[in-house]
Amino acid sequence: MHIKGLMFDPYNNAYIVVLRDEEHSDMLPIWVGKSEAGAISMAMENVTPPRPMTHDFMKSFLDAYNAKVISVVITDLSEHTYFAKIHLMYEDSEYTVDARPSDAIALALRSNAPVFANDTVITKQSSEELEQWLENLKPEDFGKLDS
């Protein structure tokens, strides 16, 4: 999946990382917090901070041991929460580590590793997303429609 961009979601006061599968034009929005969005946007824009940020440190840690991020996978979605796995290669063995999608994506961008999403996540997302938007609608939002 391509990381298409970051959007601000005023309803949830959070940010949305938009992933897109170019082949099937599937979209996967992932809600993340402000600092997580910052970590992703710095990598997207290739900003080098004066001191290593958390994910730069994470990358240095893996680099110190020649551990490579092979890929990250958004694996599951339940109750509006996404889960991810990071696949690592270290000394000819592969390791799978549980992570939040925001950490996985921030690290993938710094490691030039591909981001994948399970099919089930994409299908589940389309129904859950609608629910989430409906839940977040406030009376004021309906008011706006009238005016």
Binding site: H55, M58, A67, D98, A99, R100, D103
Partner: peptide, 10 residues
């Protein structure tokens, strides 16, 4: 896992 839990896990 939060970011530092992830580092610990690595």
């Amino acid at each position: 896992p939060m970011s530092h839990d992830l580092i610990k896990s690595f």
